[in-house]
Design a protein around this nucleic acid. Structure first.
Lengths: 159, 159
DNA sequence: GGTGAAACTTCTAATAA
DNA sequence: TTATTAGAAGTTTCACC
């Protein structure tokens, strides 16, 4: 996949928008000593190029009663039908992310639950899917790192 | 942690903002047949309550040359210093997420890299951290599920 | 590429219901 | 709690560098 070249101005714009997608373009313009029109054009260009895929809210799931996070590795049976199992997994809304992987597991997912009991229910549901041989659960005690900005800065400095 | 009560209107507002945080409040108002002022008040209330923690851009890392994703489980030595190792991990920008876990691993992280070689470098760096006994890598072949909306809908319907 | 200003749209807070 | 309103603020376009 080809690299898209971002210059320092693009980088600074992204930097401000990553923190808050509703940062007014006029604020960004003031900070970068450019015009708001330029900010607008730059953002549009990055959107058109697909570098900016979209924007999203970060909700506090703990405040909504969902403080339990676990990662679940799924082993499939020899005659496994990855697609079939993924479709079933996709019906469990508490599974927020799933990857097909090589290595220890065949499928690897992230689960958000209310508490231990709720997580148990979800994991049993996963175990019950046809084609799932067994699962292995890792419970998150603490999310210690979650930083999207550092990677972006590193990528920028490489270019 | 106490649940915060969201009504149908809050839910619909979140639903639209999760897809695009820059959706004009006037658009949301039109769709929900309420006034823009009401949307504004509701959003502010959810921000003040901390339900909405923030907003962020979704970048296409593949387009930026980072198409490799792996999950790395870290085993620490018996006399392990989790905090020390986390500090070292935090210095590697390609580690975008890390959790302290119970279960198979002591620490569990997500790695974003350019390619297999780059990933190898990063994993060797993790292996070299003092206190790390060994690591186990799961390479993502495909991100098959990544859906934040389904969970929100489910949470809402429970309340 | 960028600017600056005009035209248009949206936000926000005060007031009223 | 919600609606209305109006001035402030932000966005977007465009003629011109």
């Amino acid at each position: 996949m080809a690299k898209f070249k971002l210059d320092e101005v693009d980088h600074q714009i992204l930097d401000m928008l990553i923190d808050n997608t509703r940062t007014p373009f006029t604020d960004i313009a003031k900070r970068l000593l450019i015009s708001a029109g330029t900010v607008h054009v730059r953002v549009k260009k990055m959107e058109d190029a697909g570098i900016i895929k979209g924007s999203s809210l970060t909700l506090d799931y703990e405040k909504l009663g969902y403080s339990f996070i676990a990662y679940v590795g799924v082993f499939l049976e020899k005659t496994h039908q990855t697609k079939f199992v993924l479709e079933r997994l996709n019906q469990i809304p508490y599974i927020t992310v799933a990857h097909i992987t090589t290595g220890k597991f065949n499928i690897f997912c992230k689960v958000r639950a209310r508490d231990t009991n709720h997580a148990k229910e979800i994991i049993f549901k996963i175990d019950d899917i046809e084609g799932v041989y067994r699962t292995e659960t890792m419970i998150s005690l603490e999310e210690s790192i979650n930083d999207k900005k550092r990677l972006m800065h590193t990528i920028f400095n490489e270019i």
